[in-house]
């Protein structure tokens, strides 16, 4: 009898493992499929000239240099605004803010900020940065808009990284007469930095892929030259890809997939960078 119980338990276990494995395969397959499909379709279009030339014939010929540069500018702009503000807010919320209903409300708002549809951020940017602050349709307005969207993630990951620093380290520092700010600056932040950087990198890689918000705050389909100042309009990979794929007749399919592949590489390389930082710091501990 014991034997049958054992057998039936073994069968249950095997069934469970099978279903869990199947679920994993189902999850991973589309991701792999998208990546492989994009590479197969787009790799042919990617040449050196494709990366360093301006587009011509409405994008049917030439390269995509201004869109790549524009996307990099956007990532830098997002980082410049979102990282310091996000980290400082994260520090304030974890180290200084009292645990009361207002703080809890703010935390709830930050979590929900991440769920706001990106086109809403776009409209917010249009009304606040473009029109009210008179930044116009510009790289600056777009960076601020994407930064506003990235803030939720930067604050959340900063908070988590800061909270993960053991209390013992803070106490050891405070117990020898080191001030709270010095403790944050010299003990907490260095410990939390890898986590904060990981979050920031993921946030800007997400910003790089956004199409909807930049659509309304300054992305242009085609521009004859690179942006000369933050107040200029710009081209960006996702918006350029959207336009050539939907608006340009007789667009070579290979070129479309080539743009998609470049965008995918930009975004994924930042994700890989984030993962590398995480793995490296985990090994150090």
């Amino acid at each position: 009898m014991t034997r049958t119980v054992l057998n039936s338990r073994k069968i249950t276990q095997r069934t469970a493992f099978t279903f869990l494995g199947l679920a994993t395969v189902i999850t991973v397959t589309p991701v792999l499929f998208i990546i492989i499909y994009t590479i197969t379709k787009g790799a042919g279009a990617i040449t050196w000239d494709f990366l360093i030339q301006f587009p011509s014939q409405a994008g049917r010929e030439g390269g995509i240099l201004p869109a790549i540069i524009g996307t990099f500018y956007l990532m830098i702009g997002t980082l410049v605004f979102a990282l310091p503000i996000g980290v400082l807010a994260g520090i304030y919320l974890t180290e200084y803010a009292r645990d009361n209903w207002l703080t809890r409300l703010i935390n709830l708002a930050i979590v929900n900020l991440a769920g706001v549809p990106s086109i809403v951020f776009g409209l917010f940017g249009l009304s606040v940065f473009v029109l009210t602050f008179h930044f116009g349709l510009s790289l600056l307005a777009a960076s601020l808009t994407l930064a506003a969207q990235a803030l939720a993630m930067v604050i959340t990951t900063s908070r988590e990284a800061i909270l993960a620093v053991p209390r013992e380290f803070r106490e050891g520092s405070l117990a020898i007469g080191v001030t709270k700010w010095q403790t944050v600056r010299h003990i907490v932040l260095p410990q939390a930095m890898p986590g904060i950087i990981t979050g920031a990198v993921l946030a800007i890689s997400r910003a790089a892929g956004e199409t909807a918000p930049i659509l309304v705050v300054g992305a242009a389909f085609l521009l004859p030259k690179l942006p000369q100042s933050p107040l200029d309009q710009f081209m960006a990979l996702p918006y350029y890809l959207y336009t050539v794929a939907t608006q340009v007749p007789n667009m070579p399919e290979g070129t479309i997939w080539g743009i998609a592949l470049v965008l995918l590489i930009v975004v994924l390389s930042f994700d890989v960078l984030a993962a590398a930082i995480r793995i490296k710091t985990r090994q150090r501990k």
Partner: peptide, 18 residues
Amino acid sequence: AELRKRVGMVFQKPNPFP
């Protein structure tokens, strides 16, 4: 902070900084 400089503390679990 000045008080804690004069009155230092050692904890239960050794907590050297990393």
